[in-house]
Amino acid sequence: MSQSTTSGTKAVKAAVLLIFALLLFAPFLFQDVRALEVAARVCVFIVLVASYDLLIGYTGIVSFAHTMFFGFGAYGAAISLKQMGPGWDAVVVGALAGMGVSLIVAVAIGLLSLRVKAIFFAMITLATASVALVLASQLSDFTGGEDGITYRAPALFKTATKLMLDENGKVLRIFGVKVNGKLAAYYFVFFSCLALFVVMLRMVGSPLGTVLKAIRENEARAEAIGYRVVSYRTFVFCIAALVASLAGTIYAIWLKYTGPDTALSFAIMIDILLMVVIGGMGTMWGAVIGATMLVLAQYYLRDLMGAAAKATVDIPILPHVLDPDRWLFWLGIIFILLVYFFPKGIAGTVMAKGAPR
Score class of each variant (00 low, 15 high):
176 G>H: 04
179 V>W: 06
180 N>H: 04
181 G>T: 05
181 G>I: 06
182 K>V: 13
183 L>G: 05
183 L>Q: 05
184 A>L: 15
185 A>N: 12
185 A>P: 02
186 Y>W: 10
187 Y>H: 15
187 Y>T: 08
190 F>M: 07
191 F>D: 08
191 F>W: 14
192 S>H: 06
197 F>E: 01
198 V>I: 15
199 V>G: 05
199 V>I: 15
200 M>T: 01
200 M>P: 06
200 M>F: 01
202 R>P: 00
203 M>F: 15
205 G>I: 00
205 G>S: 09
206 S>H: 13
206 S>W: 04
207 P>D: 11
208 L>S: 12
209 G>S: 02
210 T>G: 04
210 T>Q: 12
210 T>L: 15
211 V>R: 06
212 L>S: 07
213 K>M: 13
214 A>E: 10
215 I>K: 00
217 E>T: 10
217 E>A: 13
218 N>H: 10
219 E>M: 08
220 A>V: 11
223 E>H: 13
223 E>C: 05
227 Y>D: 09
229 V>K: 01
229 V>T: 15
232 Y>E: 09
233 R>A: 10
235 F>Q: 11
235 F>T: 12
237 F>Y: 14
239 I>E: 08
240 A>H: 06
241 A>M: 07
242 L>R: 02
243 V>M: 10
243 V>Y: 03
243 V>R: 08
243 V>N: 05
244 A>N: 05
245 S>I: 00
251 Y>M: 15
252 A>Y: 11
253 I>C: 12
253 I>Q: 14
256 K>Q: 15
256 K>N: 13
258 T>F: 12
260 P>A: 07
261 D>M: 14
264 L>H: 03
264 L>S: 02
267 A>I: 09
270 I>Y: 03
270 I>Q: 11
270 I>N: 08
271 D>S: 14
274 L>T: 10
274 L>Y: 04
275 M>R: 05
277 V>E: 06
277 V>W: 00
278 I>W: 01
281 M>G: 14
281 M>F: 01
283 T>W: 01
285 W>Y: 14
285 W>N: 14
